[in-house]
Write a protein that binds this DNA or RNA. Structure first.
Lengths: 348, 348
DNA sequence: ATGAAAGCGCTAACAG
DNA sequence: CTGTTAGCGCTTTCAT
């Protein structure tokens, strides 16, 4: 069955009806008699006819595609979000045009590319900070925008409370009795302006501030397990090293775990480690972490966008997704320290 | 600057020229006088005009989008390939429509969706086995197809020699002196028909067959580090356990590494582990593995497809990408065994 | 070099 | 219910 050159006119002619009727059959318009519909359907089948999504989109002004902008496609957290978004978009009948954004130039190009070119009906922004002007450049072209994991002005945003997350992790460690705690996070990046690390760090500091006698050691490095491992080695090799390290992402926490192994420090006995995200491998490694709903954030963002595309109500401008402290086996009370309040503990 | 309602006609009118001329300017047609071009360009700028990719595609019959079909989007190897493909497609000016294929139903739906609907100019199939009929359903609609990591009939395919890969890993282990070697790979899947594991297993067996006194213990489980870890625990807990395990993917090797840790077996002293792929974390973990060019396979596949889309020559129907044994710290001679030929070794 | 006009394949409004 | 017709916004001959 070859469908080359088979268009709606050919179907109409073959079925002995008008193109309008064929169009109605395709789009499930109710105003078609059952028998006509049956005949048209049969001809469509016989000719192997497939409507051109392009022509349909042009004529109706409704493109069934959505642009998904993600930073650093290969990061586990990004992939999880993308996975969720793509699944929903597929279910809703939208093509997902994914753009991997690694530089401001790519970001700006993508933004410009989708404003007004009729390639996508809407834009889902994942983890990319954008200014009101940038969002505006899209929305003013008539495309709805929804942001996930970024608190962007001018569009609905699904976010988490990073400050709270930083506090949760730190309080868990403080609760176990740790008083010298390291923080390893992403180096502030002037390029794209990611802000998650700094907020988690603020939460970390806030928690320490409330706990007399506690101290933090902060290091920020470029993202990556290897980089984090190097930072941890340095931190743990210094004098008066921390008894616990909070890493701003699981990827970095994995680096810390690896550093500990290299230094022959056992986790959690000699060093407690807390991560952030709860990516798949965190469970396998027994990593204690602050879980955020990664896949679900992508799903929800896509759902939100689809709803707007379908002409639904705007929905909440800002939605905060829940965080959950997941305690596994990478954290424990420090070897020698004040026992955690509420538990008795003999000295060793 | 709002571009709503600004179409090529508006630009033409404002510039006092015909739409044809504007079109020529946009597409860089040489047949436009410099001054006319300048004026048109200026009006375009002033009006904030952006050509509709949709209309352009419909009129010219050339869509600037490519469908990328990937299985299990979240797997590291898939993501690496996707990353490479998306980068090339972006550079070549194509939108990447990514479809995550997890079931035969999704696969078939995607295949049908892109055949003839004018949504994509071509299809890049990543790691998905397809029949000649399935490939044909796309190509007969006029869309070129290129496969990556799948030896699909009827379209150019970029593959690796999985049998060789299995042999390389096994021979490395045999060379170190191992004689009882475990194999942990994906359970044969009737659903999608992936074949990599079985070929690697065949290579494994071939290598053992050639080595008198060697024996293999084969287990296949559903894909995943956790599943592989469980399989490894069982395998190592049995009587006469292997001194080395070859996992059919790094993800599974990581599971084995974890199992070893749980069982208090040190790697590589008590157990050698070899993986396959060389994903990012393999390096961090010091995993010995068979490296295949993941990102590059995606790149090359996209390049190949773009070339065909640009009307270039068909290129080779089948291209075998190189494999490389990457020896790190997860493999060593077994504790008690015949010393590897060629090296002398005192007993311990 | 440039304007005019005929589509690309479909949708939607309008008669009947 | 259904045929007809006018576009959607752009590309592309074909004259000029």
């Amino acid at each position: 069955v070859c469908a080359r050159g088979v268009n709606i006119a050919a179907v109409a002619a073959e079925a002995g009806v008008g193109v309008g009727t064929v169009s109605r059959v395709i789009n499930g318009s109710a105003k078609v008699s059952p028998e006509t519909r049956a005949r048209v359907l049969q001809v469509i089948e016989a000719l192997g006819y497939r409507p051109s999504a392009l022509a349909s989109a042009l004529a109706s002004g409704a493109v069934r595609a959505v642009a998904v902008l993600v930073p650093y496609l290969t990061r586990p957290s990004t992939v999880a979000r993308l996975d969720g978004a793509v699944a929903v978009l597929e279910a809703e009948g939208y093509d997902a045009i994914v753009c991997n954004i690694k530089t401001p130039a790519q970001r700006d190009r993508a933004l410009a590319a989708f404003a007004d070119t009729h390639r996508a009906a809407g834009v889902l922004v994942v983890s990319i900070p954008l200014s009101a002007e940038q969002i505006g450049s899209i929305t003013s072209a008539g495309l709805p925008v929804v942001s996930v994991d970024a608190d962007n002005p001018g569009c609905p945003s699904l976010v988490i409370d990073n400050h709270l997350g930083g506090r949760l992790a730190t309080e868990h460690l403080l609760g176990l009795g740790h008083r010298r705690i390291g923080f390893i996070g992403d180096a502030p990046d002037a390029q794209m302006g990611f802000r998650s690390t700094s907020r988690r760090l603020a939460g970390f500091r806030a928690a320490l501030r409330r706990t007399p006698g506690s101290a933090g050691i902060v290091v920020t490095v470029p993202h990556g397990a290897t980089e984090a491992a190097a930072a941890a080695v340095e931190m743990l090799g210094g004098r008066d090293p921390p008894t616990a390290i909070f890493a701003a992402s699981d990827t970095q926490a994995i680096g810390v775990l690896h550093a500990a192994e290299k230094l022959a420090l056992s986790v959690p006995e000699d060093l407690s480690v807390v991560g952030f995200d709860d990516i798949d491998t965190a469970g396998l490694l027994g990593l204690t972490t602050v879980r955020q709903p990664l896949e679900r954030s992508g799903e929800q963002g896509a759902v939100h966008l689809c709803r707007r595309l379908a002409g639904g109500p705007p929905g909440p401008a800002r939605q905060v997704l829940p965080l959950e402290m997941v305690v596994r086996s990478s954290t424990a009370p420090p070897r020698r320290s004040v026992p955690p309040p509420g538990r008795s503990r003999s000295s060793c």
